[in-house]
Amino acid sequence: MSTVPAILSGRGLVKHFGRVVGLNGADIDLFPGEVLAVIGDNGAGKSTLIKCFSGAHAPDTGTMEVTGQDVLFRSTHEARLAGIETVFQTLAVSPALDIAENLYLGREIRKQGVLGTAFRMLDRKRMRAEAGQRLQDLGIGTIQNISQAVETLSGGQRQAVAVARAAAFGSKVIILDEPTAALGVRESARVLQLIHDLRERGMPVILISHNMPQVFEVADRIHVQRLGKRAAVVTPSKFDMKDAVAIMTGALEVDEADQALGPVRTPAAV
């Protein structure tokens, strides 16, 4: 194990939904600047695990830390204030609103002065300008009109809006839940490129995916979730896809010595 402190970690997380066990003492660590993939069979607790950190669920027991501080999020808003942005599987975009409105949904920019404080007026112009800039920065400026309703966009473009929203505001961690599940080949490639770019900028990313080739392409470490627990953490260099599937199904157990529980990407590269 290493001395580099984890940027985000969870220990012994338990979450029950009625009689269904979502998490059964799960651990997780995310280190600075890395892309951590979380894989696992359906019902292994991948989504539940990350939803504890994105504020959508609160764990029944267990501890969560973000940059060394104990946290417990009761809403996605609290998680966002702590610097954790999540792109949910359902995207959480509002189809009837336009791109700028969606980017700033829940944290709108108000006008300066009395108009903003007393009349709570939105600074629509500034929101549009900054939204355009943010999409441009992410290399997804192909969406021509920032005042276009999100329902008029393709699946990939919607995904780009959701990722842009996370990337624009996430100060510490970005969580992506199945970002390519509904996308075509070209659109998937663009989202993977986005993850690469985020990594280049030193932004830690948690990626949940079913897509093994994609996981092995972008991840620094792969967290395998099984039966509500962390079964193993491996690196793509030491293990291949077949091993990962074997761990997922319980056919293979990996010694702690062979695992990658500590950071593999040196902070100097960040």
Partner: peptide, 25 residues
């Protein structure tokens, strides 16, 4: 048209789950 409250009304009516996940109460 011009306040966050107004935008939130549309967002809540449009998709309450998405609005909640976006941090709107």
């Amino acid at each position: 048209r011009n306040t966050a409250w107004g935008t939130h009304i549309y967002a809540v009516g449009d998709d309450p789950d998405a609005a909640e996940l976006s941090g709107i109460s």
